[in-house]
Design a protein around this nucleic acid. Structure first.
Lengths: 196, 196, 196, 196
DNA sequence: GATGAATGAGCCTTCATTCAT
DNA sequence: AATGAATGAAGGCTCATTCAT
């Protein structure tokens, strides 16, 4: 966790460097030295401010999660409460925001997931994120159906988002934003949710 | 890839040990020595037969993929061609086969995905698997709708399967097989696909 | 030292294989497995018959030394005792016998020397060879000069032989047999030794 | 090759330690750990600065070659151009400089030669040295004889130097500096080169 | 605050050798 | 006589981390 006092210019540089290196060689092959070199920062300082390699990954993920959260919030803010379909589309769009599709970010997500299974700190981070999406969706859906259906639909949409994202991440073609929207809109229509 | 000649008794032991160790400490912390100890096998022989740590992961994933493939095939075999809904349910059920939900297997999958982004051999393995699911689904759906819809539905079901699987994997509660079936059946009903 | 009983066909094969592998990768990188493969012989048998890697090098050098010894003897036998110049030339020619110039043999010699400094068994072998050349030369020269001069000339000729051989071995052009003869003949002439 | 920045005190220590260990157990048995221990330096730092074991050998040989080169140059500098015999004696003496006769150095030379046949970097080093001696000698001799004779004499003296050196290195008595001088002076006299 | 020198722990891998067949 | 499976020991090297400047 970032001690205050670290130059606020260098922090984002370091986080970008972390993602870049993970992009190039993977988390397990990434070394503190590589990351430092990428950011033109001495490796020692990474230890000093982030308390080691895993602290750096945590900070990096916090940054990505914040971006994700903002991408969703911004889109929701401009859509009235009662336009449920549009609001769900906004949530989806936020999850497929351009920043989240950057290959660097994509690879960092995957590395994060694999690592989160073995580091409690990361696991907590992951759980919060997982629940946030669900709760956003439940929130929108609760006016449209009864509890059981709400739960199923929320889980379905969340699964669609994550599933499309994952399959795209693993495919050489990358994540197709249009396709994602088409698939989920189609689902919403099947469920008679008007998109406005 | 496993040279022939390795005792056919020890191979599966070694693969189980690999998954067990990945389960316990994660792929990046897993050492050949740990795996050897777990299987009561000298680390040297692992290198001899699998050509190193990454060869071992590859062999392990091939084994998991074969299990997955069989889990689907077996279920499909007993359902007539024309019962499309049931066949899709069979595909889904195969993907949520008990073996695939074992935490050891789940963690190995995640490690595999993260690693596949940086090792071509693993990437190829991953791509084959990704396509196999899609092609199974397209095959079933093509008698029900026109091409465009088939594609969207196939992608949706694939995404639901992977998304539910992933979210379950990352959740402390694990993967809920009933829930998975409920969500996907609900989707099929929305699409007016009879489940027989 | 070769236990009797080893197939007399395989022994020379193994020695050839040893030199071949030393030629290709050097002694320190040569492994028993490589040598076995080269000779189509299981590595275990090398241990069985030669008592390990160093025993194999010893046997190989014994074989080379025997060849060298024979190359000299054969040439001396056909030259009358009193034709001292010609006999010295014969000794020189034997040391530059075609077999001794084979790159495989050359590299094995160098490896042997380096190793001999640290293995008594090899050192003894080396010492015998070193003395044999000197004593051959002293033998021929003693009728031509007085003791002091004999010693100096014997040492000089021995040094010329070994020096030319060594410099050639280390040069990319290899050992030049004609040049060797020219240099040493020139030396003998300077010393007024008639070549007949 | 040595990255700059390594403490200039420790570099020579490390090179001495390398020779010492080669002296004791030979190059192939020498381990980075042994050398580090000998110099009171952690093995890791050797890799850091020399890029591995072979880099260390290279640095060590460069150091020995520099000593050799200086030993010759110093002696040549104090002898007038026209005293050819004395200058050749100086070259010889430089090659038999006390430092070069140290058993540690002798064994390192032998190890170097054997290794140079299989490592291009070392081979280049070796070739430069081989040519330097010849060109020194040709330079001195060219005023005394015609081209053909010059070449033969240069090769002869070079061979005598290396041959005496090698035979001494391999002999339990070591290299005899007086004997070396006697043999080569004798050769020069036979060739009517005045020693002044 | 920042750096680079230094380290020690540990991992992958190789290999000579042994053993059961 | 011969083999190939198996092992234990060890080596080179990498890397996160610490320390003195």
């Amino acid at each position: 966790m970032p001690k205050l006092g670290m130059s606020e210019i260098r922090r984002p540089q370091l986080i970008q460097a972390t993602m870049q290196v993970i992009h190039e060689v993977g988390l397990s092959n990434a070394t503190v030295a590589m990351i430092g070199r990428q950011a033109n920062i001495s490796p020692s300082i990474i230890n000093h401010y982030f308390g080691g390699k895993s602290g750096l990954l945590e900070a990096t993920m916090r940054s990505i999660l914040k971006d994700l959260s903002r991408a969703v919030s911004e889109r929701l803010q401009v859509i009235p409460r009662h336009q449920v379909g549009a609001r769900i589309e906004a949530i989806v769009a936020g999850n497929f925001d351009r920043k989240q599709l950057d290959p660097k970010v994509v690879k960092t997500w995957l590395a994060f997931w694999a690592q989160a299974m073995h580091e409690p700190t990361l696991a907590r981070l992951q759980r919060i994120n997982e629940q946030r999406l669900l709760s956003h969706l439940r929130n929108e859906l609760k006016s449209l159906a009864q509890t059981d259906q709400v739960e199923i639909m929320a889980q379905a949409i969340a699964a669609l988002i994550d599933g499309i994202w994952l399959r795209g991440a693993l495919s050489p073609k990358g994540i197709d934003r249009q396709m994602a929207k088409a698939i989920i809109d189609d689902y919403l229509q099947s469920k008679s949710i008007p998109l406005n």
